[in-house]
Structure formats: C-alpha cells, structure tokens
Simulated scan of single mutants.
Amino acid sequence: MSFEEAIKDLGSGIIIDIEVTPGSRSVSVPSGYNEWRKRIEVKLTKNAQKGKANEQLVECLAELFGISSSDILINSGATNSKKSLLLKGVSYQQAISIFGARLKK
C-alpha cells in the first residue's frame, strides 16, 4: 500500500495523518509520503511558533480540497510535527484522487 494508508474514511469526512516540516524554502502540500511512519509529508514556509505553521497547513489543505478552513480540525499533534487532521465534507475518494495526482512521480 502507499499513501492511502494515511487517509481514514469516516463517512462524514476523513482523517489524514501528516508529517510537517516547518520553515522550508517553499510550500509543498503534499511533498511526499513516508511509508515507515505512514504519513503524508508536507513542507511549510512558516515556522512552528505561535501556531503559524498550523494556520498555514490548514489554509493550504482548505485551498487544496476547496473547503472552508473552518471544516478542518487538528485532531491530534497540534504541537508536534506528526499531526492527524479531520477534514469535514471531503470523501475518501476525493482525497485519494487529489493526493494521488500530486504524489505520482
């Protein structure tokens, strides 16, 4: 299996397991997949101070999936590089096709 392991279907939305690298030179959502940690990798330009990287992550995912940032919740890992995010109103198939198109090499 590949990046699909990082996405869990809840019916009303999905949970995505993400690993964030803050303070990068450029934003890359997603930037890859860590098959050992089973997490989708994301690079952000904001540093992990006062929630700036979390804000940027939520904004980038909202834009990527075409949903409001209020429909995204950081389920766990708010102060950690390994996070689980709940995206409401996004289907498992949507997530697979959007991430799949961006993660194919």
Rank of each mutant, 00 (worst) to 15 (best):
Met1Gly: 15
Met1Pro: 10
Ser2Ile: 11
Phe3Ala: 11
Glu5His: 14
Ile7Gly: 13
Asp9Gly: 04
Leu10Arg: 13
Ser12Asp: 15
Ser12Asn: 14
Ser12Trp: 15
Gly13Trp: 04
Ile15Cys: 04
Ile15Leu: 09
Ile15Val: 12
Ile16Arg: 09
Ile18Lys: 01
Ile18His: 02
Glu19Gln: 10
Val20Gly: 02
Thr21His: 11
Thr21Gln: 10
Thr21Arg: 13
Pro22Gln: 09
Pro22Leu: 03
Ser24Cys: 13
Ser24Lys: 15
Ser24Arg: 15
Ser26Glu: 15
Ser26Leu: 09
Pro30Ser: 06
Gly32Phe: 09
Gly32Trp: 13
Glu35Met: 10
Glu35Arg: 13
Glu35Ser: 09
Trp36Arg: 13
Trp36Gly: 06
Arg37Pro: 04
Lys38Asp: 02
Arg39Met: 03
Ile40Glu: 00
Glu41His: 10
Glu41Thr: 15
Val42Arg: 00
Lys43Asn: 09
Leu44Met: 04
Thr45Ser: 05
Gln49Arg: 11
Lys50Val: 00
Lys50Leu: 01
Lys52Ser: 03
Lys52Gln: 05
Lys52Cys: 00
Gln56Asn: 02
Val58Met: 05
Glu59Cys: 01
Cys60Arg: 15
Leu61Ala: 03
Ala62Tyr: 08
Ala62Gln: 09
Phe65Asn: 02
Gly66Trp: 06
Ser68Val: 02
Ser68Pro: 10
Ile72Val: 06
Gly77Glu: 01
Thr79Glu: 08
Thr79Arg: 12
Lys82Leu: 09
Lys83Pro: 05
Lys83Val: 08
Leu85His: 11
Leu86Lys: 09
Leu87Asp: 00
Lys88Met: 06
Gly89Arg: 12
Val90Thr: 01
Ser91Glu: 11
Tyr92Leu: 00
Tyr92Gln: 00
Tyr92Phe: 11
Tyr92Lys: 02
Gln93Ser: 13
Gln93Arg: 14
Ala95Ser: 11
Ile98Glu: 01
Gly100Thr: 08
Ala101Glu: 08
Ala101Cys: 02
Leu103Ile: 03
Leu103Thr: 03
Lys104Gln: 10
Lys105Leu: 04
Lys105Thr: 08
